[in-house]
């Protein structure tokens, strides 16, 4: 230890004073409830008593036809929700960022701020706004399609089982595309001019420069965006709840793990709330998110080469 002498002699209470409040709140309100939720998943209620039930709740969740159907439906929907994000949000975000970062582009700051506006709105606003716009009663969407001669294409997208989930996923993409755009834009700006100039000398410009030089350099940012999207999607709730209600209609076709957890934990209409089954669903969500994050940290991130300039 080569710490300079002055603050070594006295007992260093100030370290505890600086750390204690943050650690106390974080432990009491986040870490402790997290583990307590995982623990509650192994209990059940009999009369007024809370009794240990082993893996019963998980057996019910995965195997009992009443529960399993809902659980696998929500999980499958959740994966579809995530896939749409990956397939649509990232390419659009990258394309917008690439356009914005082109040199000497005027009004870039304006475009950037405007495209980011949906990201700051709450799910409640976004959900209802799109519900109104896509509503067949109001007629904005059919009217606009009519104007370009495509009226026949209009369908009540949010009201049909086959299209509702995809429509909601696209609304969510519309809302969040600003985040990948910003992060990739920042990554593109850090690519040094010399590298691009050197490539230009070798005759690599335009599209080729983007695919061969810029894209490999922004792969780490794409990795971060993917894991943020994964975690965000697997505890999403607000948009579906605001647009379709807790029953995630029509006929549970937009049910994802977040809405399933809410209904199970709180109860809805005829169903009674069940904290222990809720805890079991939350534990399943925890394991899925943990698996995704570990996959990213230990597999994806190690393979991506980070370039230092």
């Amino acid at each position: 230890m080569t710490v300079p002498a002055p603050h070594r002699r006295r007992p260093r209470w100030h370290i505890a004073v600086f750390l204690a409040p943050a650690v106390a709140i974080y432990t009491a309100v986040m870490i402790f409830p997290l583990f307590n939720t995982l623990r509650l998943a192994f209990y059940t209620r009999e009369g007024q008593e809370r009794v240990f039930a082993g893996l019963d709740n998980f057996r019910t969740l995965f195997l009992d036809p009443l529960w399993a159907e809902q659980f696998w439906n929500a999980l499958g929907n959740n994966f579809w929700f995530f896939l749409i994000h990956m397939a649509v949000q990232n390419p659009i975000g990258i394309a917008l960022a690439a356009l914005l970062s082109s040199p000497r582009l005027r009004f870039a700051a304006f475009y950037r701020s405007a495209i980011f506006v949906p990201t700051i709105l709450s799910f409640v606003i976004v959900g209802f706004a799109w519900k109104l716009i896509l509503s067949p009663i109001w007629g904005i969407a059919p009217g606009m399609l009519d104007a370009v001669g495509l009226k026949g294409l209009f369908q009540p997208w949010l009201g049909q089982e086959e299209t509702a989930l995809t429509t909601l996923a696209l609304i969510s993409v519309w809302q969040f595309v600003g985040i990948p755009m910003m992060l990739i834009y920042a990554a593109l700006l850090t690519i040094p001019e010399e590298i691009l100039e050197a490539a230009e000398c070798d005759g690599i410009t335009g599209w080729a420069a983007f695919w061969k030089i810029k894209l490999p350099l922004i792969l780490p940012s794409i990795g971060i965006i993917s894991i943020l999207t994964f975690v965000g999607n697997f505890n999403a709730f607000d948009l579906i709840y605001a647009a379709q209600g807790a029953l995630a209609g029509p006929d549970f076709s937009t049910d994802i793990l977040g809405t399933f957890l809410y209904r199970t934990f709180f109860g809805f209409q005829l169903q009674l709330g069940n904290p222990h089954m809720g805890a079991a669903i939350a534990s399943a969500m925890f394991l899925i998110i943990l698996a995704g994050v570990s996959l990213y940290l230990f597999v994806v991130q190690r393979r991506l080469r980070h370039y230092q300039f």
Binding site: V29, P33, L34, N36, L261, A279, A282
Partner: peptide
């Protein structure tokens, strides 16, 4: 996400 601990 802290939402996982909601029940507790």
């Amino acid at each position: 996400p802290i939402r996982i601990g909601t029940v507790a």
